[in-house]
Design a protein around this nucleic acid. Structure first.
Lengths: 275, 275
DNA sequence: GCTTGACCCTCACGGTGCGTGAGGCAGGAG
DNA sequence: CTCCTGCCTCACGCACCGTGAGGGTCAAGC
């Protein structure tokens, strides 16, 4: 904090000039800024004391004040210099250019704010679609409450974060593509079970790989995580109902082909953890 | 411009990883950014070739992609690092904080834009008051067209610029104070002429000084400029009518006291120029 | 094997407008 | 003579890379 006006030097009326501290107090800028403007030659004091103190005369203060005014509307020091020193400078033109730049920056920031809104929504709700869109994409038996429940359960996991980040950049068409892929996979799964594909067979392992690829739309799935998922699908009533609705026993069969594939990759499915 | 995919290295499917150029093309960021993120440890490639080439694996790309997403909403690299590395980080909280910051910056830019509007108006119109305000402040015989005429005449001079800059930061009350000062000065001028004050007398010289001070509200006035002004007030029909309306012959008398004061300061009023 | 061209590497400066010390005079008060 | 405040001059730091400089690497074509 600058003390404006020491008892022995009343700072006002000293005809020879003001020191940096006095000038800074009067102009509402920092001493460092005055030093800087002096360094770059934008506003140098006309006088110095014998000891080297800067002394700003009335004319200097005049110029400083103009600098402050233009700085307040966001002009860069270079342009201020041009405006002050070049008597042919097009001041209104420079101001208008600046205003255009500012408008542009505002627009960018607004888009950025929109993006942030989407990200926040994605993290908090998990799905950015309207209820109608959700019904159209996920089918009529879709429960719009699913995302909220999922957030309740998984909101603090790294996987939820990745899911949320991706959701933020997905529109309805992309969701449609994903559900199509999932539906296609579910169908293939049921067909394979019907066809008598056995766990551990190349066909079954290929399906397991396909599942990981499809699932990667939500977040990357390690084999270990896939094992856990397979067991959850079998154990969780909701998920089990979904798979058993496709073919009776499909949830269990899926768990079996995942386990077999994991074993083939050196993972013990009975000790696999979510990582 | 990066060529994505040279004929001999199809850039897709190389299981061991992508080079910087390939990764940059895929992510839409520059190679330099990848280098930078590596330097600061935000995203380092898991692999290097024997020659030292960076190789980004699928997992690396995963992380890079998350970085890009968060960078697009304006998060700083430090905060991105926190969001990615600190599993206890409050992501929605960070996003909301960012949104608040963005809103703040938008607000500042809006005010800045308003300031620019005022400045532009000041440079182009000279007066920022409504016609009613002008009438209230300058009196009923004020011609609202004065500012436009003045800009026609003086718009390209340094003095007009200073006038415009100051106008931009003046409200109605300040204009009122200025017109009050001017009116007070005009009255004192008439009284002095009535009282028989003679050009060159201390009283007359004091009035000349007071005129310079009062006039400084518009722009700083040198003594030379004041001489020119005195002659213009006498010669210009509009200005002459104003002063002679106060006291007959006041325009001429004012020119005389200015001339005398100038002579006392070593200026020849007959060769004085506007500088 | 040599050239060519496209990539890749590691420094390292620069830009914007000062903030923030560090170390040391200058000048008045007690 | 000491103390305190204000002033001085360096000089680094910041956020995020852009932009060379100077020099290897890799695959292809001759």
């Amino acid at each position: 904090m600058q003390q404006s006006g020491s008892p022995h030097r009343p700072d006002a009326g000293d005809a020879d000039g003001l020191t940096v501290g006095q000038a800074s107090a009067r102009l509402g800028v920092t001493v460092r800024a005055l030093h800087h403007w002096d360094e770059i030659g934008l506003a140098r004091p006309s006088l110095r004391t014998a000891a080297g103190y800067r002394l700003y005369t009335a004319g200097d203060l005049e110029r400083l004040h103009r600098i402050v005014v233009y700085r307040e509307v966001g002009l860069g020091l270079d342009r201020i210099r041009a405006v002050l020193d070049d008597s042919t400078a097009d001041v209104p033109g420079a101001l208008r250019a600046q205003r255009a730049q500012v408008a542009e920056r505002i627009e960018r920031l607004r888009q950025l704010s929109d993006g942030l809104d989407r990200m926040i929504d994605a993290h908090e709700r998990g799905l950015l679609l309207t209820v109608e869109q959700q019904a159209a994409i996920f089918g009529p038996q879709w429960d719009p409450d699913w995302a909220a429940q999922a957030r309740q359960r998984y909101g603090d996991t790294a996987q939820w974060r990745q899911y949320a980040e991706r959701s933020a950049s997905r529109g309805p068409e992309e969701w449609q593509a994903i559900t199509d892929a999932v539906a296609g996979f579910d169908g293939a799964l049921g067909d394979a079970m019907d066809a008598g594909v056995t766990p551990g067979s190349p066909e079954a392992n290929q399906l397991v790989e396909r599942h990981r690829e499809v699932f990667a739309s939500y977040f990357p799935l390690t084999r270990q995580m896939q094992v856990c998922l397979g067991r959850m699908f079998e154990a969780d009533p909701g998920f089990a109902a979904h798979y058993d609705g496709i073919r009776t026993g499909l949830a269990t069969w899926f768990r079996q082909i995942v386990d077999a594939s994991a074993r083939a990759h050196g993972i013990d499915p009975d000790t696999a953890t979510w990582q």
